[in-house]
Design a protein around this nucleic acid. Structure first.
Lengths: 338, 338
DNA sequence: CTGTTAGCGCTTTCAC
DNA sequence: GTGAAAGCGCTAACAG
């Protein structure tokens, strides 16, 4: 592999000159020399060694991103999409993503190691927790990072999040417009998912706004089965207490809900309206096609990168949080009360 | 951030000594000096700069892996799982994954650039095509790589693949055991997916082995809808020509098939047996739970890394291809012919 | 046993 | 206009 030295030798100039030409620096290179260097470089197929450059500038061109756990059994499509768009957005800015994994219960050592070895220039965090030890670490180390998802912290930090409250509100309002009064929700256990807390609160608030009671909330883990169990429970209720509409915290739960309802002979749509959250790729293909709150994942990824770039350009001033609006995608799983 | 110089100064020794101690080289460092250096290093919090080390060794500790396209609309769970396990396997070997994207139609320039800039030490390719331009490029450049998936090439290369033939054979044999004779298949267009060709051929072969005709093969793109369309077509057939069992090239098509069948009032399992391929996380939750051919994704990722490590250790001898066995996971979507 | 030094490939200040 | 040389942080011959 040719180095800058080879180019210099071939062109009969010094390595400094080659560097100047290639970087358009030192505006005092004669046109002929410049042309000669350029020609020689392409001729012998020279490309700068990125590691050497990195050493010089003490940067890496890498952004660290941790894998969310165990995609083997849970189907975390949102983050799958996020990382893909993130990779794109990073490349648009001349960066690459360095992906890594860490134990669920103790993520910080890996972050610390990556910082200490100067393996990456910054981190992007997704799936942030209410009190996220990673954020604390990064703030303490004064290391650049941007988040997808909010968190409780003492010091401000830059993040992008989806206005789930708005999405939940839209979903509930839509149900109400259709004449529903008994509206239930399937949620996750708060302990494990802070996202759930936000959405449940938004649900309660929205219901209250419409003068409805939010007493039908079923809690479970993130799984298709949770939707099933919720329905099984509600089906036991006296018929006038049974929900006519259900808002599911994610499409996965909505799918479980749908199948279980169908097995109970309940017509989803006609007899039971369902709205999900996330707009999984599969959701539009369900029968009935699932009405759901779609998160703007691509825009989120782009916004996170944008924030990070701003931070990297000027580490003193932390970009303001960005809130993106979700969109209620109306399909066939909701009908009006006759 | 402290450097080796700082340690040397603090400990009152030369940087060479520090380096020796830290790398356990030059077995001639006195115990006291060694202890002193070690103590100083931890005291001032020294960690080697990985970029400097990389420059010295002309390595990067990075393995390039290209994102499969557009996870936004297709649900490519297999590769999603693969990359996750790959990240794990890479870290076990002291590497990290550098992920990148490229245009579908023209991947090679990005690979070329990554090679020329020496951004990565090797590549891992997944979703290999019949004639893969990436493989040609890497072979020509003499750059280390390992594949998940076979391909047609002049020169040998190292790869890991799942013995799809065996999986298809098991599926068909299972149908036959259950008494099925009219067995259909949903497949992908060959042009776009070489994987499909392999599975279709295996299907035809398996059918032939059992003395059955493989005339019921429906071709479509990789989508849930393809399963639906296949069923719609078969339903038109005279009843004695309709399939009693269907093998779907992937679970996604099986899901479409199932829903469509159910909408036609066909009892999946009892009246129509279905087997999928891949064992998507959702598949076990379907009703009936889907019988499917599970690919050993984790083992595949580990085997690919193992091959790559062997190649990196000795680039002269290309590790033999590895064939992993899939497993027929029997659930509820297949019943015996009465 | 430990230190001096060259060098990995590149950028940039300072001289000429 | 161009080149010599220092230096980014680290390793490893080679001296002593």
């Amino acid at each position: 592999m040719p180095t800058i030295k080879d180019v210099a030798r071939e062109a009969g100039v010094s390595i400094a000159t080659v560097s100047y030409v290639l970087n358009n620096k030192g505006d005092s290179i004669s046109a002929p020399t410049r042309a000669l260097v350029l020609e020689t470089a392409t001729r012998i197929g020279y490309t700068p060694n990125v590691t050497a450059r990195n050493l010089r500038f003490s940067r890496t061109g890498l952004i660290g991103y941790a894998w969310h756990e165990a995609p083997s059994n849970t189907m975390n499509t949102v983050l799958d999409q996020f990382i893909y768009h993130l990779a794109f957005a990073a490349e648009a800015e001349g960066y690459h993503l360095l992906t890594f994994t860490h134990p669920t219960d103790d993520p910080t050592p890996v972050y610390d190691e990556l910082i200490r070895t100067r393996r990456v220039d910054a981190f992007i965090l997704a799936g942030t927790q209410e009190h996220d030890p990673r954020i604390e670490l990064l703030q303490e180390r004064n290391f650049p990072f941007a988040c997808f998802g909010r968190s409780q912290t003492d010091r401000p930090f830059t993040y992008v999040d989806v206005n789930a409250e708005q999405g939940v509100h839209d979903a509930v309002s839509y149900f109400v417009e259709l004449g529903h009064k008994r509206i239930a929700m399937v949620a996750w256990d708060h302990k494990t998912y802070s996202t759930s807390l936000i959405r449940v609160r938004a649900f309660q608030q929205a219901m209250q706004t419409h003068g409805l009671s939010a007493d039908l909330v079923y809690y479970g883990e993130h799984s298709e089965d949770t939707g099933r169990k919720a329905l099984q429970q509600w089906v036991q209720l006296p018929s006038d207490e049974q929900p006519t509409a259900v808002f599911a915290i994610s499409d996965l739960e909505a799918i479980g809900l749908m199948s279980e309802a169908q097995e109970h002979g309940i017509q989803v749509g006609e007899q039971l309206s369902i709205i999900g959250f996330d707009d999984m790729p599969l959701s539009q293909h369900l029968r009935p096609a699932l009405t759901t709150v779609r998160q703007p994942i691509k825009q989120s990824a782009e916004a996170v990168m944008e924030n990070l770039m701003a931070l990297l350009a000027n580490s003193d001033d932390i970009p303001e949080p960005v809130m993106l609006m979700p969109e209620l995608v109306k399909r066939k799983s909701c009908h009006a009360i006759p």
